[in-house]
Design a protein around this nucleic acid. Structure first.
Length: 578
DNA sequence: AAAAAAT
C-alpha cells in the first residue's frame, strides 16, 4: 500500500520472486530434520517457482535450494520511484534537534571472538542505495554509538546481545541491515525473512513505523501484528506480502496457529526489550516461537537481542538463542545520564494532586508532561481530576481499548493533549520527542521501572526533568533510588540519604549481588574471571544462591529443572506477593 | 496492593 511498486510486484509473476541474494537461503539446508518445509507443503495454486532438492550444484551443506528465476528482472537493491505523498507521511514529523555532542561521550564496549570494528560514519559500510537514501531522509547525519558498533556486527552476520537503553538508536541499528533483504513469495501464508518481537503493542507499532521509513522505495514490505486490534485487517495486510514482521508474542502465536505466518525462512530474529518481555511472562511464548516451531535453529538464523539489563534470565535466553555472540555494552543515553535533572520530593498521598497542579502550572504550555501512576484505576481517576481542573490531558493504560491507547498516544505526541497520565505500559521504549517533564506521581516499586520511566524525557541528548513524589509507601525503592541519583550526579535530599541508610540496616538486601558502576548497563559475564554469575548493573533480580563463578557455557546440567525459579535461597516473590 | 499480553 505504501509501496508504490508493490502491486506490479504481486501481479508480475503470480507470487514467486527472484531470489537475488541466493546466500540468504542456502543456510537452511541443514534443517531438514525439522520436517518438510511448510513452504513446500502449502504451495498455492498458480505458483510458478521451482523448489529442487539436491540440485543446483553442490554448495555448502545444503540439500535443497531455491532456484533463481532469471526471467524476473526485479532488482531489490535498486530504489523504486519516489512517492511524494508517502515521503511526506513518513519523514515529516520526526527528529528535532539531536544533540550529537552528548553522544560522543557515551562509552561502548564490544566483547566476543572476532568482533568486527566499529564505524564512524554510515558510509563506512555498504548499506546500499535505498537505505542510504532513507538515512538522508530521516536526517540521521551520524550514527549513534550503538549504531557505530551494532551495524558492522549485524552486517558481519554475527549474533548480538546488546545492553542498551532505548533512545540510543538501537531500533535503527537492527533495522538498517535487516531491511536490505529480498522478499519472495506472496500468498495466504507469509514467511517473513525478519522477525522483530516487542513487549508492548505501542512499541511494536513504533518499530513498524521506523521499518516503514527504512524500507521506503524498496520492495521490502514490513507488517505489524499485535493484540487488541482487528485481526482480519492484520491478516489482509499480511496477505499483501510480509518480509519484515514486527509483532507482540501473543498475537504472533495466534497468527502462527491460524497458519497465516510461517517462520521457516526467518533469517533475522530480533528480541527487543528482552528483559521486559521476561518480566511480563512472555518466556513460554517466546520459546514457543523461537524453539518449538519452524524457525531455523540458532546458527542458521541471525539473532539479535536487545535488553536494558543482563540478569541471569537473560543470560540463559542468550545461551539458548544466540550462537557465538558479540556482547555490546552501551553506556546509558538519556536515562540516568546528566541530561535529565532528577528531583525527588516528599509528598504525602493526600497532597499529591495539589502538588501536581503546582508543577503543571509551572510548566510551559507547549512542552509535554508525562505523569506515571502505579495502577490503572489511579490513571483513570487522575485523568478525570485533571480534566475537571481544566487541563488538556489524556491517559494510557492496559484496560483502555487499543484504539483509545493509540489515540491517546497520538494526542500526546501531537501536543493536542500535552499531559498524559500513564501506567507502566508507556514506561519502556516509547520514543516521544519533546517530553520535557516526567512526573512519578507514584514511584514504582522497581528501580528498573524508574530508570525506564524517566528515560521518556531527555531523549537523544535533549534536556529533561524528572520529578518523583516520595513518601512512606516508597521505602522499598529508597536505596536503589539513592544509588541512581548519586551515579547520575544529581542532588540528593538529605532525608533520602538518611532513609536509605536506615533501610539498608533493616533490610535483607545485604546479600544481593553487587552492582556495577561506570556507566555500562551490564557486563559480558563470559569475560569475568571464573566465567560467570554476573548480574546486570540494575534491576537484576536477586537470583542469588548459586555462589558465583561457575560458567554455564557447556554446563547445561547446572540449570537443569531450575527454570522459572532460578533456584537458590531467594524466594521469587515480588513486592506484591505474587 | 499491579502491569503487561491472544480471545
Amino acid at each position: 500500500m505504501h509501496n508504490a511498486g508493490y502491486v506490479s510486484y504481486e501481479n508480475k509473476d503470480g507470487g514467486w520472486n527472484s531470489v537475488v541474494n541466493r546466500d540468504a537461503y542456502t543456510s537452511f539446508g541443514g534443517r531438514s530434520d525439522r520436517g518438510k518445509s511448510a513452504f513446500f507443503n502449502d504451495r498455492g495454486a498458480g505458483s510458478r517457482g521451482r523448489y529442487e532438492r539436491g540440485g543446483f550444484g553442490g554448495g555448502t551443506g545444503g540439500n535443497s535450494r531455491w532456484v533463481e528465476e532469471s526471467r524476473d528482472e526485479e532488482d531489490w537493491s535498486k530504489p523504486l520511484p519516489p512517492n511524494e505523498r508517502l515521503e511526506q507521511e513518513l519523514f515529516s514529523a520526526s527528529n528535532t534537534g539531536i544533540n550529537f555532542e552528548k553522544y560522543d561521550d557515551i562509552p561502548v564496549e564490544a566483547t566476543g571472538t572476532n568482533s568486527p570494528g566499529h564505524i564512524e560514519n554510515f558510509h563506512d559500510v555498504d548499506m546500499g542505495e535505498i537505505i542510504m537514501g532513507n538515512i538522508t531522509l530521516t536526517r540521521y547525519t551520524r550514527p549513534t554509538p550503538v549504531q557505530k558498533y551494532a551495524i558492522p556486527i549485524i552486517k558481519a552476520k554475527r549474533d548480538l546481545m546488546a545492553c542498551a537503553q532505548t533512545g540510543s538508536g538501537k531500533t535503527a541499528a537492527f533495522l538498517l541491515p535487516v531491511t536490505q533483504e529480498n522478499g519472495k513469495y506472496v500468498r495466504r501464508k507469509q514467511f517473513p525473512i525478519s522477525l522483530v518481537l516487542a513487549p508492548t503493542r505501542e512499541l511494536a507499532l513504533q518499530i513498524y513505523d521506523e521499518a516503514r521509513k527504512f524500507s521506503y522505495r524498496s520492495r521490502v514490505r514490513p507488517c505489524v501484528v499485535y493484540g487488541g486490534a482487528d485481526i482480519g485487517q492484520q491478516i489482509r495486510e499480511l496477505e499483501r506480502g510480509c518480509h519484515l514482521l514486527v509483532a507482540t508474542p501473543g498475537r504472533l502465536v495466534d497468527m502462527m496457529e491460524r497458519g497465516k505466518i510461517g517462520l521457516d525462512y526467518c533469517k533475522y530474529l530480533v528480541l527487543d526489550e528482552a528483559d521486559r518481555m521476561l518480566d511480563m511472562g512472555f518466556e513460554p511464548q517466546i520459546r514457543r516461537i523461537v524453539e518449538q516451531d519452524t524457525m531455523p535453529p540458532k546458527g542458521a538464523r541471525q539473532t539479535m537481542m536487545f535488553s536494558a539489563t543482563f540478569p541471569k534470565e537473560i543470560q540463559i535466553l542468550a545461551r539458548d538463542f544466540l550462537e557465538e555472540y558479540i556482547f555490546l555494552a552501551v553506556g546509558r543515553v538519556g536515562s540516568t545520564s546528566e541530561n535529565i535533572t532528577q528531583k525527588v520530593v516528599w509528598v504525602e498521598e493526600n497532597d499529591k494532586r495539589s502538588f501536581l497542579l503546582d508543577l503543571l502550572n509551572a510548566t510551559g504550555k507547549d512542552s509535554l508532561t508525562l505523569v506515571f501512576v502505579e495502577t490503572k484505576k489511579g490513571a483513570d481517576s487522575l485523568e478525570d481530576f485533571l480534566y475537571r481542573e481544566g487541563y488538556a490531558c489524556t491517559s494510557i493504560h492496559g484496560d483502555r481499548s487499543q484504539r483509545d491507547r493509540e489515540e491517546a498516544l497520538h494526542q500526546f505526541r501531537s501536543g493536542r493533549c500535552p499531559i498524559m497520565v500513564a501506567t507502566a505500559v508507556a514506561a519502556r521504549g516509547l520514543d516521544i520527542s519533546n517530553v520535557k517533564h516526567v512526573i512519578n506521581f507514584d514511584l514504582p516499586s522497581d528501580i528498573e521501572e524508574y530508570v525506564h520511566r524517566i528515560g521518556r524525557t531527555g531523549r537523544v541528548g535533549n534536556l529533561g526533568l524528572a520529578t518523583s513524589f516520595y513518601n512512606d509507601k516508597n521505602s522499598n525503592i529508597t536505596k536503589d533510588l539513592l544509588d541512581i541519583l548519586v551515579e547520575a550526579k544529581q542532588e540528593v535530599p538529605s532525608w533520602l540519604e538518611n532513609l536509605a541508610y536506615e533501610h539498608q540496616h533493616k533490610s535483607t538486601n545485604r546479600g544481593r549481588p553487587k552492582r556495577f558502576s561506570g556507566g555500562f548497563g551490564a557486563r559480558d559475564y563470559r569475560q569475568m574471571a571464573g566465567g560467570g554469575n554476573v548480574f546486570a548493573n540494575r534491576g537484576a533480580r536477586n537470583t542469588g544462591g548459586h555462589g558465583g563463578s561457575r560458567g554455564f557455557g557447556g554446563n547445561k546440567g547446572y540449570y537443569g529443572g531450575n527454570y522459572g525459579n532460578y533456584g537458590g535461597n531467594y524466594a521469587q516473590v515480588d513486592w506484591w506477593g505474587n
